[in-house]
Write a protein that binds this DNA or RNA. Structure first.
Lengths: 342, 342
DNA sequence: AAAATTCTGATTGACGTACCTCAAAAAAAA
DNA sequence: TTTTTTTTGAGGTACGTCAATCAGAATTTT
C-alpha cells in the first residue's frame, strides 16, 4: 500500500521512464495510444506526483505578487504582516512574495500597478481592489499570460480570477444584522450603517445582507441610509453629530468597512456609546481594544493569517495545476466578542 | 539572494559536508569547537533545512495514532471524518493515521488502549480522554519511549503531553455567558447548564467561565446547579420536565457537552423552546439543523478540520524537532449563529 | 615519541522527479 | 522496398538532504 512512483507507472504501462515523464509533463513526441496507456496506468495505480520532489528537481520558485491598497488602515497592515509571516514559514517554502502597494480609492492606480507588473517574472497574483472595466481588462491580459490570479477579500466575480479568498459579504451582513437584532433590547429604534465607500462590492453586499435580515426578523429596527466615510475623520464626526441630533432614537451602528476609529471617536465625543449597540468589521488593534473597552459589542472578522495562507496555497495549487482542498480554504465568518478575542 | 544549502554552510565553516550533516542532525563525533563553527555559519547564512528534501532522503513515514471515544456522538464522527480527509491530502504526505476507538466514559478502557499501543511502530499519539492518574502514568511511559503526544479537545495539563490542541474551555464558557446575557431580553430569570459529566475537565472549565461572566455582567440571571446527562436520553427528559416544573422563570439553557439532541427533544416536548435562549457546543449535523430551525440560538464551536490538521502538523513538528507556527495552530472559539454557519 | 583515541574529509548511494541526449525501434511516406 | 519521420528506450545529471563507510588527520593519553 505504498505510494506509486513514476517507475511503477512505467512498468505498469509497459513503457520507459522517459515516456512516462513525457506524458506527465505533456511534452510532445508520444503517440496518442501510448499516452492513453500511461494515463490508464496513472489512473489504475492512483499515482499522484510528489510535488515537493518535483519542485526540488525543477528548482522551481513561486513568485507571487500581492496588490494591496496603500491605506493607513490597520487591517491592511495586519494582513501584510500575516503574509510575510506565512511566507517565512517552512510551510511555504520556495515562495517569494512581493507586496505591491496601490493608492487606495484610485482605480487608475490599480490599473497602472497591474500594467507595471513584469509578467515574465511572475507566477501568481493576489489582488484586493474594486472591480472596474479597466481592472477587468488588465487582469484578463495577465491571465492570458498564464499567471494565476486570486481575488482577495473583495471578489471580482466578472474578472478572470481563478479563485476568491475571503468571506461571503452578504452572509457577513446577515450575521451582523442577526447580532444587532439580538443585542438591541429596546422595542424600536433606528440603526445606522457606515462604510468607507458604497462603490466597493463588499460594502454593497454587506448592506444587502444586513437589510434583508433586519427587515425580515427584526422589523422594529429601521435602517437609515448608508453613510460614506471616505477616509475623512472630520466628515465622519460631522455626520455623526448630525445623525444623533436628527435621530434621538438611534439604537445601533453597523460599521461595514474601515474607519472604525473615527466612528468610535465621533460617538465617544457625544457620550453616546453606552446605549448603542455597535457592530464593526475586522479585528485590528483598535477594534480589539474597543471590544475590551465595551465600546464595540461584536466584530465580524476573518482570520487574516488564514486568509494569507489560503491565498498562497491556492496560488501554488493553481500554478501546479493541482486540486484545491476546499475545506481548508473556506474562510469562516468569525464573530468576535470581548470574551473570545483570539 | 538564493537559499543557502548545506554546501554553502560547509564552505563557510571551512569543514566538509559530512561534518555539517553530523552537526545538523546532532550526531556524535564532532568537536565542540567545530560544532560552534558550523552553527555560526548556519546563523550567518540564515540556513534553513529543506524539510521536504530531507524527508525525501530520509523516506520517513510518520505513524500517528488517535485515541478517540467510541461514542455515538456526532461530534466524534465529524472529527474522525476531518482527520481522514486531512491525512488523505497531499499537504499531509507521508502521514499514516490510525484511529483507536476507546469506550466512552471508561477510564480503564483508555488505559487498556494505551497499553495496547505498539510503541515501536508509532511516532505520535493524539488523545481525547479525561485525565486520571492511570492515564497520566501510561502517557508518561509512552512519552519516555520517545513518542510525541498531543491532548485533543480536553487538555491533560498534568500529563506528559507536548501540546494541547483545542479551545480554551474557560474562555468558551465565558463567551457562552456573554451571548446568553445579551440574547436574553427578560429582566430576570434562571439559566440551566447541562453537561454529560462534570468529571471532564473541559466541562468544569466551561462552567467556571460561564458563571464568572454571568455573575459579574448579568447578575439578573441566575444559574441553576449543573445537570449531568450521562448519555441517557430518558434521564435527560425526566430532568428537563422537573426543571421546567420547578422553575417557570427559566430563560436560558447552556448545553456544555454532547447530548444536544436529547436536550432539544426534551424541551421540544414541553413546547418551551420558543421562549428560551439555547446555547450549545460543537457544530454537528444536528446542531446545524437546530440552528436553522431556530431551536438553538448560538453554537460555540471549534473547527474540526482545523483541529485535525493542527494535531497532525504539531505531531509532525514534534517528531522533526521543529518549531511550531503558533499562529496557525491556535484554535479559535467560533461563535456560530444561523447566519454564519460554515 | 609512540600508541590510542577522537575527529574530520571524501565519497557513495539513495529518495522521486525533471530534463536532456543519443541511439534504436517503429511507423509512415516515398 | 527504401527512405524519412516519428516514437520510444536507455542512460545520465541534477535538486537538497540523509546516512553510511573508510581512510587519514588531529588530538590526547601513555
Amino acid at each position: 500500500m505504498v505510494k506509486p512512483t513514476v517507475h511503477d507507472i512505467a512498468s505498469e504501462a509497459g513503457v520507459s521512464l522517459a515516456t512516462v515523464d513525457r506524458v506527465l509533463n505533456s511534452r510532445s513526441g508520444v503517440r496518442a495510444k501510448t499516452v492513453e496507456r500511461v494515463q490508464a496506468a496513472v489512473e489504475k495505480l492512483g499515482y499522484v506526483r510528489d510535488t515537493y520532489a518535483a519542485n526540488l528537481a525543477r528548482q522551481k520558485q513561486y513568485r507571487f505578487a500581492f496588490l494591496l491598497p496603500d491605506s493607513a488602515s490597520q487591517f491592511v497592515g495586519t494582513l501584510k504582516a500575516a503574509l510575510l509571516e506565512a511566507s517565512d514559514t517552512h510551510l511555504m517554502e520556495r515562495i517569494n512574495v512581493k507586496v505591491v502597494p496601490v493608492p487606495a480609492q484610485d482605480p487608475h492606480g490599480v490599473v497602472r500597478a497591474l500594467h507595471g507588473l513584469n509578467t515574465t517574472k511572475l507566477d501568481g497574483l493576489a489582488i484586493m481592489a474594486p472591480e472596474t472595466p479597466q481592472v477587468r481588462d488588465a487582469l484578463a491580459r495577465i491571465k492570458r499570460e498564464g499567471i494565476a490570479i486570486v481575488a482577495l477579500l473583495s471578489d471580482l466575480p466578472n474578472a478572470a480570477r481563478d479563485h476568491f479568498v475571503g468571506i461571503n459579504s452578504y452572509a457577513a451582513g446577515r450575521t451582523a444584522a442577526f447580532l444587532m437584532g439580538r443585542f438591541v433590547h429596546k422595542n424600536r429604534g433606528k440603526v445606522l450603517t457606515i462604510t468607507n465607500s458604497m462603490l466597493a462590492r463588499d460594502s454593497i453586499d454587506r448592506r444587502l445582507g444586513f437589510d434583508a435580515v433586519l427587515l425580515q426578523e427584526f422589523p422594529h429596527l429601521m435602517t437609515l441610509p448608508s453613510v460614506e466615510f471616505r477616509d475623512d475623520a472630520d466628515r465622519m464626526a460631522m455626520i455623526i453629530k448630525e445623525v444623533c441630533a436628527t435621530h434621538p432614537d438611534l439604537v445601533g451602528i453597523y460599521s461595514m468597512g474601515s474607519g472604525n476609529q473615527a466612528m468610535i471617536e465621533g460617538f465617544r465625543a457625544l457620550a453616546r456609546l453606552d446605549d448603542l449597540v455597535v457592530i464593526a468589521h475586522e479585528l485590528t488593534p483598535f477594534t480589539r481594544k474597543a471590544l475590551l473597552g465595551k465600546e464595540i459589542d461584536a466584530v465580524i472578522a476573518q482570520n487574516v493569517g488564514h486568509l494569507a495562507r489560503s491565498a498562497l496555497r491556492i496560488l501554488r495549487a493553481k500554478c501546479d495545476g493541482v486540486a484545491i482542498f476546499e475545506a481548508q480554504e473556506r474562510i469562516r465568518i468569525d464573530v468576535v466578542t470581548r470574551e473570545n478575542i483570539p
